[in-house]
Design a protein around this nucleic acid. Sequence first.
DNA 1: CGTCTATTTGAATGTACTCAAAAGCGGTGG
DNA 2: CCACCGCTTTTGAGTACATTCAAATAGACG
Lengths: 195, 195
Amino acid sequence: MLVSLKSSIERTIGRKVPDENCEIFSNYLFEKTFDKKDILIEAGSVCKYIYFIKEGSCYAHLEDEKGETHAIQFGIDGYWISDLYSFFSGRKGIYTIEALEPTKVLFLHKDNFEKACNEMPIFDRYFRILIQNAFVSLQYRLAKTISETAENRYTEFSTLHPDFIQRIPQYLIASYLGIKPQSLSRTRKEITQRK
Amino acid sequence: MLVSLKSSIERTIGRKVPDENCEIFSNYLFEKTFDKKDILIEAGSVCKYIYFIKEGSCYAHLEDEKGETHAIQFGIDGYWISDLYSFFSGRKGIYTIEALEPTKVLFLHKDNFEKACNEMPIFDRYFRILIQNAFVSLQYRLAKTISETAENRYTEFSTLHPDFIQRIPQYLIASYLGIKPQSLSRTRKEITQRK
DNA sequence: CGTCTATTTGAATGTACTCAAAAGCGGTGG
DNA sequence: CCACCGCTTTTGAGTACATTCAAATAGACG
């Protein structure tokens, strides 16, 4: 199994994964390569896969009535990304996921996801904890979004995710923070001028 | 077992719960009564319980550096509420949960939560789906928070949760939406004047 | 009825937005 | 290798929306 995936599992569940489980799980995963700007998941279609990013990066975004898009989540190598609303509910998705760089993923079909969870409790536990963690950090992010200024949100984001700052264009970070690129530019100027 | 809890489980997992599972799970739950304004969970302490609200309502909030509080989540009878960050991580909590009305809850200790999940796959599944759903709606709420105006967020909130509008003071709804009570008052005036 | 809390209203301020344009940067083809 | 093109970031000026501070009104509860 892919080293980064194995270490994600072991880090998450806090112990080693038996080789036979790795073996079986590996057989459920298939590889796919995307170019920059390719669409992994399209809003409006049912999302049947979750993607583990092996190399590269991508982001989930949402289009509003005015036709503006809003970045909801970023994913880089070592992370899973998907439209979990659609994946879990089986309804049409609302998020589009797009590659930011040339990206290699391992994708897991919903059927195999369920098989893995039913056959091997270790994967049940893995995905459960992953989503628990995702919930907790999302709640924290929402709390900050409603309580902090854009400047503080940017500062926190850049200390929490310095790697994202390097690889993700600024206008998408602005979108993720809920502000316009022009505003983020001004905010950044403010910050550097104060130093 | 409490009817509203049993129906929550059956609605969530999509099938009946065997009586013996109900029996065991019921033994893990204990009842507690709170008055209005009582604190169920205090920020700064480790949260060892999740609470199923039998009667009444409560809300989770967060205090920022300026000493202002922000409503993060509401819970009414039939819903679970907790500081999941603290509950899952075992670290000190950041949210305070307070009763909005005289409230009766069933509380489940973390040890019993884990026992239930380990002994009975049906509860594993129940809590897993609960948190999946919570994640999905939280992500949607965040998407709306960064992409919509305060007015649209209020309108959507009031159509999505008409019951909350009835029972929860307006200044807390404002806080939940990320605006000040004065602003929500003006926004509401705007809306009614347009009709 | 009186007190406490919540909601509404007013006026001035501030923060982020819009529209618009210039500057910067990266990749491509001549 | 450099000129050009497209895309991102920055800057400017005016505007819109939410905030602050302050006070008045309305409601809830003993």
